[in-house]
Write a protein that binds this DNA or RNA. Structure first.
Lengths: 202, 202
DNA sequence: CCTACCGATCGGTAGG
DNA sequence: CCTACCGATCGGTAGG
């Protein structure tokens, strides 16, 4: 028998744990989609066999559901925090757009998965996610309406504008590179300006 | 033997042909994604067995490649036609955005598939598609730059603005309903106005 | 257009 | 963490 004395510190080797599984799933789901990713590929990235994954997760669907649900909850929390205590409606929309844009630059994989594979999330999680997204879009629409009433914005089609603003921010996840010429913060600032323009800032 | 006299007019029954297969694939790929759609589901919609599909197509991948390639070629053709003979740069950008927005309202399924499953298109078709998309984005960026030089637009980050404009139009495919309150043309007009605002129309 | 069938791979379990 | 294995399903072919 080879000397395999148990010691307190394990050999310096990457530990596989639930967080590592999620991290691998995040990358692969974002690249190939939920249905385009096999658990054997996730296992491969981690250097283990497929059945060993089940020491760290319950099911493939759980990986997707957790990623989509947590991301969507955080988007809503971001929004609430961004506008909290801010009275000026222009500044409220600017901050709401900025924080949404920023998240899409800093959490690209999560954003891509939410926007691509939301239909593959099983109930009841899917309904909860869709409800949160509706609420977010409604909140943005409400800001535009409010600004129009106050004479700060000029855009009667607030629903169309709200969708346009949000999806413009989502697009950041498709092309942003961390090592690119612009920082996430700069891009977020720029896109929040676009949001105000779409709303018809006077 | 039942009387099955061949007559010129076939019994009034939906004929399965390559166009019908493509139509079914279009709907299912858009709903569930390429990897999320089984050929058995396409066959089911058409009321035939899976192997019978092969009388009307060569492979599942061909269905995807044709949809994505033809749509992308048409987007580029749309663009060229929209700006042809138009000198004013503001009008050129307005028309380019309008035609792109319009296509996303009138060809929702195609647009959803292109944006979701482009990574599943095999080479060499994928490279051709990506090249056309790059060319389109570059053209939009070029219009913004041109307008800035002429003092018509005010947006130094033309690359960011071009991506934002295009993706804002893409978003239409996600929420537009033919039976909704707005016509495709109205939505396209509205979004082309947003495009000019993002470009910093003075 | 069908039935019958192919090898490959899927997500997941048993049992250690 | 592994090997061995499960039933189900995948895209696709043979042959009529």
């Amino acid at each position: 028998m080879a000397s395999k004395v148990p010691i307190d510190q394990p050999e310096a080797k990457t530990t596989v744990n639930p967080a590592a599984v999620r991290e691998a799933a995040l990358t692969l789901f974002a690249e190939r989609g939920y249905h385009g990713t096999a658990l054997s590929q996730i296992a491969g990235v981690l250097g283990i066999r497929t059945p060993s994954l089940y020491n760290h997760m319950r099911a493939k669907q759980d990986l997707l559901r957790d990623i989509v649900s947590e991301t969507t909850e955080q988007v809503w929390a971001d929004y609430e925090q961004a506008v909290e205590g801010v009275d000026d409606v222009v500044e409220r929309l600017r901050r709401a757009a900025r924080v949404y844009a920023l998240r899409h630059a800093t959490h690209r994989r999560e954003a891509l998965i939410v926007n691509r594979d939301i239909a593959s999330v099983e109930e009841p999680a899917r309904s909860r996610v869709l409800e949160l997204r509706r609420r977010h879009a409604q909140a943005i629409k409400g800001l535009i309406d409010e600004g129009v009433r106050e004479g700060r914005f000029d855009e009667p089609e607030s629903t169309l504008a709200a969708f346009g603003i949000l999806e413009m921010c989502v697009s950041i996840a498709r092309w942003f590179r961390e090592d690119g010429p612009q920082s996430a913060e700069t891009v977020a600032d720029t896109y929040s300006t676009y949001a105000l323009r779409v709303a018809g800032l006077g």
